[in-house]
Amino acid sequence: MIFGIDVASMALGGMAAGMILFIVSVGLSVTMGLMGFVNLAHGAFAMVGGYVIVHAMKSWGLPFVPALATGCLIIAAASIVLERLLYTRLYRAPELDQVLFTIGLVFITIAAVTVLVGPENQPLTLPSWLQGQVDLGFTTYRTYSIALIVVGSALALGLWLGFERTRLGAQIRATVDNRRMAEAVGINIDRLFTLTFAVGSGIAALGGGLGAEFLGLDPQYPLKYLVYFLIVVAVGGLGRIAGVFCAALLIGVLDFVLKKYLPQGGTLFIYALTILLLLWRPQGLFGKAS
């Protein structure tokens, strides 16, 4: 019985952590897969989104959920402007120039946030209905973790349906698989890119707000967690929603279990696991072999 509770609590805790990784990383996976654009500034969108959400709650007095929506929309809108003005100029550039550009953007964001808001961590206070614990029948667990699992799963399902069942999703899949062919059959690539970029950034902003309880919010955010976002994308396979979802859950749960039973190992296992997975499947769990 004790063992059962233990397994349940580990699964739940790990899944909650994995959901945050999924929500923040999914946009990165799609932009990298769809546009072949290495957007290392993706975490900056998540961070600024988180800041907007905290600000919306503190200064505009919005409740948690409307604040999340506001942050998501503002970042999506802002990302359209950035995409049209700057990113689009680099779509055909070599990947390394894209790396240079997006790391430059990260530096600018870090400095700007430090000057405008300050270097300190931004506290996000959860509403009381998300605090404390909830009885699930078989075990009692942290309410917020359960909420994250529900929201993350719903989002994953929604994105997956959108990907598999809508016209837009079909266009994106076609472009990920064969861009030239997609252009040839008359898909408006430019509009598709802008739209996907905006959705990915908006979801990242949502992740910034939802994940603040665990990841915190401070100017270093985009660099601090970049490696984890990249691991999830690489392990999942570029441009694969289901892949990102499974990779994020896998990393989240394993990290949780290993931290609990082998705390001395630190983050060692995550790196070892990533190496093994990538050597086994270089295209990622769900990626197509090229």
Binding site: R89, L100, F101, G104, I108, A111
Partner: peptide
């Protein structure tokens, strides 16, 4: 906030 200047250099060179 010196990273601002550095970031601008990277962005401008990349663009």
């Amino acid at each position: 906030a010196w990273q601002l200047g550095l970031g601008l250099l990277l962005v401008i060179i990349a663009l």
